[in-house]
Simulated scan of single mutants.
Amino acid sequence: MTFTQSAKAVPTNLSKTMVYMPDELKEALVKWAKRENRSLSNLIVTLLQESVKNAKSKDN
């Protein structure tokens, strides 16, 4: 079991990945996440899951 780096340690079985992105993109994603009352991580995972699902459906 690993712990995320945050104000509170939260146990997780999820993989940790570092991503480099332009500051403008991060700022836009942070604002989006705040509007939806989500963490930045949760928003990014959701967007990636949707993209993978769409890519898989195009493969069929």
Score class of each variant (00 low, 15 high):
residue 29 L to P: 03
residue 1 M to I: 09
residue 32 W to D: 12
residue 29 L to D: 02
residue 7 A to C: 03
residue 21 M to C: 11
residue 23 D to N: 10
residue 49 Q to S: 11
residue 35 R to W: 01
residue 13 N to V: 10
residue 59 D to R: 09
residue 19 V to C: 06
residue 26 K to A: 08
residue 30 V to N: 07
residue 22 P to D: 11
residue 32 W to G: 00
residue 53 K to V: 06
residue 53 K to C: 02
residue 19 V to Q: 03
residue 18 M to W: 02
residue 8 K to R: 13
residue 32 W to R: 15
residue 29 L to E: 05
residue 42 N to F: 01
residue 31 K to H: 07
residue 54 N to V: 10
residue 58 K to H: 13
residue 39 S to Y: 01
residue 1 M to K: 12
residue 32 W to Y: 13
residue 60 N to W: 07
residue 44 I to C: 10
residue 5 Q to N: 15
residue 36 E to D: 13
residue 33 A to Q: 11
residue 10 V to K: 12
residue 47 L to M: 15
residue 2 T to D: 09
residue 25 L to W: 02
residue 3 F to C: 06
residue 13 N to K: 14
residue 59 D to Y: 03
residue 43 L to N: 01
residue 13 N to Y: 10
residue 2 T to Y: 08
residue 16 K to A: 04
residue 22 P to M: 02
residue 42 N to W: 04
residue 17 T to S: 03
residue 19 V to F: 10
residue 15 S to A: 10
residue 13 N to M: 11
residue 49 Q to P: 00
residue 51 S to Q: 14
residue 20 Y to L: 09
residue 25 L to K: 07
residue 31 K to P: 00
residue 12 T to S: 15
residue 15 S to V: 06
residue 35 R to S: 10
residue 28 A to V: 05
residue 15 S to P: 02
residue 59 D to F: 02
residue 41 S to P: 00
residue 44 I to N: 01
residue 56 K to I: 06
residue 45 V to C: 02
residue 35 R to D: 11
